Computed example of a mutant assay.
Amino acid sequence: MIPLLLALWPLFALIVAGYVLRRQGFPSEAFWPGAERLNYFILFPALLFNSLATAPLDNPALPRLAGAVLLGLALVWVALLVIRRLRAWPAARFGAMAQGGLRFNTYLGLAAVGSLFGQEGLALAALMLALMVPTVNVMSVWALTAERGVSARSLLLPILKNPLILACLAGALVNFAGFGLPGGSDRLLGLLAAASLPLGLLCVGAALQPRELSGEIPALGWNSALRLLAVPLLAYGVARLLALPSMETSILVLFFALPTAPTAYVLTRQLNGDSHLMAGIITLQTLLAAASLPLVLTLLGS
């Protein structure tokens, strides 16, 4: 437990710092939206591209890891559909609940993997993201629009334009082609990547909205328990079923134990979902993850 806490507490300290800085108006309110865009479109794609362009893609466990990711997401999705049927949720509410159960804080996940497993772990995590990001985005859009219908174009076009997906694809292509990263480009990408995760965690903290925690305590509580406790337990079972090696198991459980993504709030507002509930889910899960993440990883022996 102590090594995990030593690896993870600086990440949550950055989240808290981001919250405090924004509430103090530093450096300015206009800084944070620009910082988020810089990270989303430039710095974070550079990290993913760099990780995949240099990753050892001959790992024999990769097919099983990919299967575990997709099977885990499918099982969570089926469970959410069953709960929706039992509770008769409208799409606006189901979309928020589904994103609370499915989506994950990518910045926190990669920062944690980097702290615990180094560059080798980051490469595996980037490969997982190449599968998880498009799958979870399709599920999230469908959940928010199920009642009024959605076209294949509106589901797939945002994914095809997603800079994270494009960076993963480009990095994998460079890797398979054997080009490498010549002429100091690896150093440039490394510098961009190094700035991504600290800035991303500060932005996560800046986006927290504690005032949204009032009013729906039972729904917020069980959704957080589902995401932070039940889902990683399910991922651990899938990893054991597919006989994943130790590092792959740990990274799979870690990503399935992460709090939901702050960007879920933006998507929920765009698609007329319950943005008040979504903001509360994001805030509570992020706060609880400071305790649940090291606890889950320790108890599951990951």
Rank of each mutant, 00 (worst) to 15 (best):
P3C: 07
A7Q: 10
L14S: 08
G18W: 03
V20E: 03
R23K: 11
R23T: 13
G25D: 02
G25K: 06
G25N: 01
G25I: 03
E29F: 07
A30K: 12
W32V: 05
E36D: 15
L43A: 13
P45N: 10
A46Q: 06
L47M: 12
F49K: 03
N50P: 02
L52D: 00
L52V: 03
A53F: 00
T54L: 13
A55W: 11
L57K: 11
D58P: 05
P63I: 13
R64D: 07
A68M: 03
V69M: 12
V82F: 08
R84S: 08
R84V: 01
R85P: 00
L86M: 12
W89F: 09
A98F: 09
L102F: 04
L102C: 04
N105I: 08
Y107T: 05
L108W: 08
L110E: 09
A111T: 02
A111C: 03
Q119M: 04
G121E: 00
A123V: 09
A126P: 01
M128H: 04
M132L: 14
V133A: 13
W142K: 11
W142T: 11
A143F: 00
T145L: 14
A146S: 14
A146E: 12
E147S: 14
A152C: 06
S154T: 15
L157V: 14
L157W: 12
I165D: 04
I165R: 01
I165L: 14
L166V: 06
A167C: 06
A167V: 13
L169N: 09
D186R: 15
L189G: 09
L192E: 02
A193G: 10
S196W: 07
L197D: 02
L201F: 04
L201Y: 04
L202W: 09
L202R: 04
G205S: 10
L208F: 10
E212L: 15
S214G: 15
S214E: 08
G215Q: 09
E216W: 08
I217A: 15
I217N: 09
A219E: 14
A219M: 12
A219N: 10
L220A: 03
N223W: 00
R227I: 10
L229F: 05
L234V: 12
L234M: 13
G237W: 13
G237V: 10
L244W: 01
P245A: 08
M247D: 10
M247T: 13
I251T: 09
V253E: 04
L254S: 10
F255E: 08
A257V: 07
A261R: 00
A261N: 01
T263P: 00
Y265T: 11
V266Q: 12
L267W: 05
Q270I: 07
L271M: 15
H276C: 07
I281S: 07
T286F: 03
L288Q: 11
L288T: 08
L293E: 07
L299E: 01
L300P: 05
S302R: 11
